[in-house]
Amino acid sequence: MAKTLMIVDDSATMRKIIMRTVRMSGLQFDRTEEAGNGNEALEKLGANPVDIMLCDINMPEMNGTELVKKIREMDSCKNTKIVMVSTESSQELINGVIADGANGFITKPFTPEKFQEKLSPFMN
């Protein structure tokens, strides 16, 4: 079954690095989208929900944890799997964002193998 992916990060450089690393992991998506901030992500998800979202935490205007809470209020995104991608690595923060509705966490720096490991369970 075809899968769709959205990458949310305020850095265009990091969005490109994540996209390249996902490709290197061997995971294939039918459609990929990018958003540079939380509001852009919500707008795009409202129009076209995705299966998997990779989301930064430390972003201006709306941080990743706030974005997760808003997405979990959207009926159209109830099946979207959200995996946070961040330099933050404290267990307290990871537990908090998982409790808010995220489905996984990848710490920067990352490898293609890490994406394979964390995203494969959501590809079926």
Binding site: S11, T13, N58, S86, T87, E88
Partner: peptide, 10 residues
């Protein structure tokens, strides 16, 4: 900026 952010995280 992203390199700075990554190094800070590490």
């Amino acid at each position: 900026g992203e390199v700075t952010n990554l190094v800070m995280g590490s």
